[in-house]
């Protein structure tokens, strides 16, 4: 793991299942890989290039060379923005020209701590109530769960393309694309 502790990883997994529950062929936000997505995002700068923007133009799933996993470099200013967003401004003057910024790492760490040590022992109702009491964590985690499950798997989620299969969505389709008939027909 790159940022989350084992406990935090387990909490994120469980929260993702509460927010995006299993249904039909969808195994739930936890099994679909939300915690892996979150951990790679919070630990994005453990990698070089950082795990911010996947490469292109093709993933290989519909032909072409598989380049999504070759993440792209950030510029000097983009690195400043993403470190600030993820790590927080931390009192660093170069990051606080408009005031302090609370980072994603802080939101997760402090928010998961606020859920309490017994969070994983509770039932779904208890866990929903606990999350509702920490809205900053809940809102951010929900956004990341949606991205993790329904975005490209190269970011760490959408394990086995389970979410895309469940909703009947093909994902990125270049360079095959869709034929004119597939576009115009029901």
């Amino acid at each position: 793991m790159h940022f989350l502790t084992e406990h935090e990883y387990a909490v994120v997994t469980r929260c993702a299942d509460v927010m995006l529950p299993p249904h039909g062929d969808f195994p739930g936000g936890g099994v679909a890989g939300t915690a892996e997505y979150v951990d790679r995002t919070l630990g994005a700068f453990d990698f070089d290039p950082p795990r911010i923007w996947a490469g292109g133009p093709y993933s290989g799933r519909f032909g072409g060379d598989a380049r999504f996993s070759e993440f792209l470099e950030l510029s000097r200013l983009e690195e400043l923005a993403w470190r600030t967003r993820i790590e927080g401004s931390r009192g660093i003057a170069d990051r606080e020209w408009n005031g302090p910024v609370l980072g994603w790492q802080e939101i997760y760490r402090d928010g998961i701590a606020a859920l309490g040590a017994g969070f994983l022992d509770g039932d779904g109702v208890d866990q929903e109530a606990a999350l509702a009491a920490v809205p900053e964590l809940a809102d951010l985690l929900f956004e990341h769960a949606c991205e993790a499950c329904y975005g490209a798997p190269e970011y760490g989620g959408n394990r086995d393309l389970a979410a895309w299969h469940a909703i009947g969505y093909a994902g990125d389709v270049q360079p095959r694309g869709w034929t004119d008939d597939e576009v115009s027909s029901a």
Partner: peptide, 18 residues
């Protein structure tokens, strides 16, 4: 030539200010 950075990637374009 194209740099090959553009792609069908909802996270990159829609969520991460690419």
């Amino acid at each position: 030539d194209s740099l090959g950075h553009l792609s069908n990637d909802e996270i990159k374009f829609g969520r991460r200010y690419f």
